[in-house]
């Protein structure tokens, strides 16, 4: 599998620029009140880098690379779980005005 020709790079570049444009429009539509949860969620999804770490940790043997991969999986997992949970906590606090004044 010789995947890294210049053709592959150009496809990657195409995907990259289109994704930047999607990101630009999607992020501008985020309401400023939710900018903190936005950071939480982007933090979690940027840890999709775990995909690379799993590939490195996957094969039997290959010692150095495998250790790096496993460390990568641990670090990315901290972020994935931490990021989504903290975002969930933030978002569950944003509540509508209650119809009746409830006491707590």
């Amino acid at each position: 599998m010789e995947a890294h020709s210049s053709e592959v790079f150009v496809i990657g570049l195409t995907v990259f620029f289109l994704a930047c444009i999607i990101g630009y429009y999607v992020v501008w539509s985020v309401t400023p009140a939710l900018h903190s949860p936005l950071m939480g969620v982007t933090n979690a999804i940027s840890s999709v880098i775990i995909v690379g770490a799993i590939l490195a940790a996957g094969p039997f043997g290959h010692d150095t690379s495998k250790i790096f991969g496993i460390i990568g999986v641990v670090l990315a997992s901290i972020n994935i779980f931490g990021g989504f949970i903290v975002t969930y906590r933030m978002l569950s606090m944003f509540k509508k005005k209650p119809k009746k004044d409830k006491k707590d």
Binding site: H4, F16, A19, W28, T42, I45, S46, I49, G52
Partner: peptide, 28 residues
């Protein structure tokens, strides 16, 4: 950073996600 790794591994998922996060942080 995730984007850079995405290019290294020719992985579109990493490239797309990295670009989304990168754009988000830049706009913020």
């Amino acid at each position: 950073a995730a984007c850079g790794i995405g290019f290294t591994l020719s992985n579109n998922l990493l490239i797309i996600t990295g670009a989304l996060v990168g754009a988000s942080g830049a706009i913020l």
